[in-house]
Amino acid sequence: MSSSPAEREELSRILVAAGHGDQRAFAELYRRTSSRLFGVCLRMLRDRGEAEDTLQEIYTTVWRRAGSFDPARASAITWLVTLGRNKAIDRLRQHREAPLPDPAIALDLVDEQPSPATDAELSQERQRLERCLDALEPQHKAAVRAAFFSGATYNELAAHCSVPLATMKSWIRRSLIRLRTCLES
């Protein structure tokens, strides 16, 4: 997402080629994107073995379903990260019937300083989203970030923040409505 338009277009072409069964294109796609997706899996699953299994599952699905990628509807990286997050969340839901104590979620909630990169390195979309997030109350912004990065359910988030479930739902729902207004304005 933080790449140039030319790079995005190239990645899109590679994904389309992989969708036609081009094995070299698939290997190149893996080379360019696996670190990004593995970072996402590790962050959500917090276990190297689980993250590796999920990454394998993600690229197996990519190989089989790349033909359904439509460059007119989404960028290649959005398509891939979406697929990756969905697989990671599915795995979290399979394993976590009951909320586990997870200090990292609490950390996400207090870790207010996001930006690992300077503004110049972030995409325009990311910068715009940050401006809209900044307009939220700090606690609500933190809850939205924690939800996104952890893949935790409302129940889990409420338990970790020691707030009632209804409070957590209201923080996040109000934030989402305000974000939509801000981003679509």
Binding site: M1, S2, S34, S35, R36, F38, G39, V40, L42, R43, A51, E52, L55, T78, V81, T82, R85, P114, S115, P116, A117, L122, S123, E125, R126, R128, L129, R145, F148, F149
Partner: peptide
Amino acid sequence: LPLSEDIPAVAP
């Protein structure tokens, strides 16, 4: 999804 840019890439 742009939020995912905040997550450091890790080579598998």
